[in-house]
Amino acid sequence: MAIDKETVKKIAFLSHLKIDDDKIEETEDEFNKILNWVEQLSEVNTDGVEPLVSVNDTNLTLRQDVVTEGNQADAVLKNAPQAQYGYFTVPKVVE
């Protein structure tokens, strides 16, 4: 499955990364190299094989419904590049 420039642009968009126009071709080539390489997997017969999601053999352990955290707005905001009035702030979102 070779990919094209459009796909590279789409993937960059979904990843929220910018690829300069003069780098698209290079990225496309590299992508195709990688995809060709991983496509070895198609040699493996996986009929009837269940996908492995986790190597843990146990079930999920649940947490009790108790409030254990909070009232730490200062700590939450400590590393914010921009904050005002106790909020994180970002460039205005136009809906």
């Binding site: 198609s42 996986t46 094989v49 996908p51 492995l52 190597v55």
Partner: peptide, 15 residues
């Protein structure tokens, strides 16, 4: 399906 799901299946075989 072609990549991620396939890889998860091969992962089971590897295990």
């Amino acid at each position: 399906d072609a990549y991620y799901l396939k890889a998860q299946k091969v992962r089971r075989l590897i295990r």
